[in-house]
Simulated scan of single mutants.
Amino acid sequence: MNQMLKDKKIVVAGAGGLLGANVVKSILLAGGDVVAMDISLEHLKTRLSSVDVDINNAHLIMCELDITNSEALTRFWQQAEGITGAVNCTYPRTNSYGAKFFDVTLDSFNENVSIHLGSSFLFAQQCAAYFVDKELPFSLVNISSIYGVIAPKFSVYDNTSMTMPVEYAAIKSATIHLNRYVASYINDSRFRVNSVSPGGILDGQPEVFLDAYCKNTHGTGMLNVEEITGTIVYLLSDLSRFVTGQNIIVDDGFSI
């Protein structure tokens, strides 16, 4: 990725997740500085180390923060300095998340949409407030999904215990429009909001699912997480200076 993010300082929320940790790694490799944020500092250190990120890197700052905590997140952005972009890789959910459609209760649906979509709203709001205060170019990247764009292909889950949660579809589709709302509201070329919609990411899924999924792509099937991060780095860089309010799909043709 060369030095695409030289002189950039990026906040990565949810940096202790599978995608978040690799986003941190890719930003550092592209010459950027990172503020890596996660709900557990110890988990964050372990995850970053597992993807070969040097946690003593001078270009890396780690902090413990719960993105669903309005007071803590607002305080973070009020105290921040020199930030040029942010990536929200968080995935907050309850223990009841992931049930099949007819087993989802209204309370569970409401709570999961509230904490995930609500925290995405809060994060975007505070990034926008930071920009208005500092008036320095800023790029926010949210993570949506192919299932925020198209209806689920439920046949790929046949013969597995897996499903595509209804809450996920509602949250990820709303995320795309939230981006447009925030970009339009701020209405300044220096403040950009976009999303990346990955297809399936390899994470120990059963072989029967991987085979069925692959048949719906152009041959690659599920993607390695590293194959998503290049698009995120592009959106954080000056190469995408006038790209805003957009959703970029990375799925090897699954959605077409």
Rank of each mutant, 00 (worst) to 15 (best):
P165F: 10
P165W: 08
P165S: 13
P165Y: 10
P165M: 12
P165G: 12
V166N: 00
V166W: 00
Y168V: 03
Y168D: 10
Y168E: 04
Y168M: 10
A169W: 01
A169K: 02
A170Y: 10
I171M: 02
K172T: 08
K172H: 09
K172N: 05
S173D: 07
S173H: 14
A174E: 01
A174G: 15
T175D: 08
I176A: 03
I176L: 12
I176Q: 13
H177M: 12
L178H: 07
L178W: 04
L178Y: 04
N179M: 12
R180P: 00
Y181R: 02
V182N: 03
V182G: 01
V182M: 06
V182S: 05
A183G: 15
S184Y: 07
S184Q: 14
Y185W: 10
I186F: 04
N187T: 03
N187K: 13
N187A: 15
D188L: 02
D188E: 09
S189E: 12
S189N: 14
S189I: 04
R190P: 01
F191V: 03
F191Q: 07
F191H: 09
R192H: 00
R192T: 01
V193K: 06
V193H: 07
N194W: 09
N194V: 05
N194K: 08
S195R: 02
V196Y: 08
V196K: 04
V196P: 01
P198H: 07
P198C: 09
P198T: 06
G199D: 07
G199Y: 05
G199A: 09
G200W: 10
G200T: 11
G200S: 11
G200R: 03
L202H: 00
L202E: 14
G204D: 10
G204L: 02
G204E: 07
G204M: 02
Q205V: 05
Q205K: 08
Q205E: 14
V208P: 02
V208E: 13
F209L: 14
F209Y: 15
F209V: 09
F209R: 07
L210R: 12
L210V: 11
L210M: 14
D211W: 00
D211K: 14
D211L: 09
A212S: 15
A212H: 12
Y213K: 11
C214A: 15
C214D: 02
N216F: 08
N216D: 10
T217N: 11
T217V: 09
T217M: 09
T217P: 02
T217E: 05
H218Q: 08
H218L: 12
H218D: 10
G219C: 09
G219L: 11
T220G: 00
T220F: 13
T220V: 13
T220R: 12
G221C: 12
G221F: 10
L223W: 06
L223N: 05
L223E: 03
N224Y: 10
N224Q: 13
N224F: 09
N224I: 01
